[in-house]
Write a protein that binds this DNA or RNA. Sequence first.
DNA 1: GCAAAAGTGTTGTGTCTACACCCATGT
DNA 2: ACATGGGTGTAGACACAACACTTTTGC
Lengths: 233, 233
Amino acid sequence: MERKPPEESTTAPEHVALAAVLRVRGGALEALLWERALAPFAGAWALPGGLLRAGETLEQSIQRQLAEKVDVRELAHVEQLDTRSAPDRVPGRRQLATSYLGLVPTDADPGLPADTAWHPVDRLPPTAFDHGEIVLAARERLRAKLSYSNVGFALAPAEFTISELREIYAAALGHDVSATNLQRVLLRRDVLEPAGGRREPGPHGGRPAALFRFRSRELAITDEFAVLRPPGR
Amino acid sequence: MERKPPEESTTAPEHVALAAVLRVRGGALEALLWERALAPFAGAWALPGGLLRAGETLEQSIQRQLAEKVDVRELAHVEQLDTRSAPDRVPGRRQLATSYLGLVPTDADPGLPADTAWHPVDRLPPTAFDHGEIVLAARERLRAKLSYSNVGFALAPAEFTISELREIYAAALGHDVSATNLQRVLLRRDVLEPAGGRREPGPHGGRPAALFRFRSRELAITDEFAVLRPPGR
DNA sequence: GCAAAAGTGTTGTGTCTACACCCATGT
DNA sequence: ACATGGGTGTAGACACAACACTTTTGC
């Protein structure tokens, strides 16, 4: 019945690296997916990724595989999520998957292969394997980190107005965000700095907006868990 | 030169599950380690764990392997940390490792095999492979979660006084903790509830302490990241 | 009464939300 | 002048740390 001989109890499993690559576009958080042509799950949408090779780390592997889909220079941040190991997660094979979260800034627009497209995370098409769950886990990780770190840098362009940043945060968090408070929180934490320039008003006037940039483009925790912290300053 | 034929680029790697099992004892945070008898790293201390079997998940695997070291019923909480994949992390083999954090309450005292012992995380003996790093990563995860979740339940006995809980938190966090504020934070968040009983004073008197318990023994996030939360309550 | 240990009252500080108000531009 | 959009001022809510003080016990 089986296409392969029964596995021994210590047979090494296949291992793939997968990435949920997210960006904000048109007020929505989107994930990069490709449409499977072959069974299983033909016609369903899957995460980019593939088998780990002998000499590489998982991190290198996912970077290599993503290079086939997007210009990797566009990837502003990549971090590991988790490793899934349910024996039946891939029909007919024993395959572990380590998932990654990848983030692309709004101003990058990489050309994509024909079978690959961005899909709003709110309305995912039918997904292959456990890839839908992974996308949702990636969104949760992103939402949490937006609150206590500077990850926003990985979604935003190099320079932006507070309004533009507000839209990015609102799309990623899934709820409205006040520009007033966003500005104050990020400035108080020294996450943003003025970039010096200004954006010209639109056709209906309005005060020109100041441009800001993220002070660092490396992930940093900006809101140490304040509770039960060491005594005396 | 090599003992094995050169690996093909898609050879499946071995995969092990490892656990950093932590507890608080004698005012210190300790990790469970076993002493290796054989090369490589003979005499060095390693984390419990071992190869993933065909039909099991990583979660089941680590539970099975830990059962050989401790009574698994003592394990109050287990969660995945990360997966390490450096090609040279195990000399002579290609081996990935998914690490877990395990927590044992202070009142459990499982019998241990002869080669296995608890070691203070502050003064680890020489460790094998990347296991030292994993123990430190487990400590960081624990410290963060103590601030924003109810994980304390997994380190504390079923019932305890606030002083006893204070010692546990202080040992795990690595700094002094005020009993006054600990009580208020955990009661305000509805993490603790009075257990009804009292502890009799010691030989030198003192007011008897009330006993408390954790309201739940399942992990729960108690301090949602408050910043940038949805508007209007 | 006195020491020891537990627990409460209270004050101050910092961070956040909400909202009123002021500013700079186009028509 | 007025509409449009950007930005600041300010007040209130809340959570926390620190510390003084009260309570309950043994001796």
